[in-house]
């Protein structure tokens, strides 16, 4: 299983803060994105935004990053702290 978490505007748009899904057939973050986008029209629209950032196990990564069962993957908008 892979734990997926969402933050800020993304969490509100999806009305979802986290979910778990089977990691079979998922090799990279890009695969995961594609699978999430296929849920419905709303998810498709949200994941079409190419400014979205992703992290695996608390490290910022690119979409090519490989993932495995037990990983925590996060998606969020560009950060605005400070």
């Amino acid at each position: 299983m892979i734990k997926v978490v969402f933050f800020a505007a993304l969490r509100e748009q999806l009305n979802c803060s986290q979910l778990s899904l089977n990691s079979e057939n998922l090799v990279t973050v890009a695969d995961l994105k594609k699978q999430l986008a296929s849920k419905d029209e709303k998810w498709q629209k949200v994941f079409a935004n190419n400014t979205l950032l992703s992290a695996v196990n608390h490290d910022m990564v690119s979409s090519e990053q490989t993932i495995k069962s037990g990983d925590e993957v996060a998606f969020f908008p560009p950060v605005t702290g400070g």
Binding site: P77, V79, G81, G82
Partner: peptide, 14 residues
């Protein structure tokens, strides 16, 4: 540290 915090640390302002 401030410049990097601004673009890398996962904080969001509403």
């Amino acid at each position: 540290i401030m410049d990097y915090l601004k673009v890398q640390a996962p904080f969001w302002k509403k």
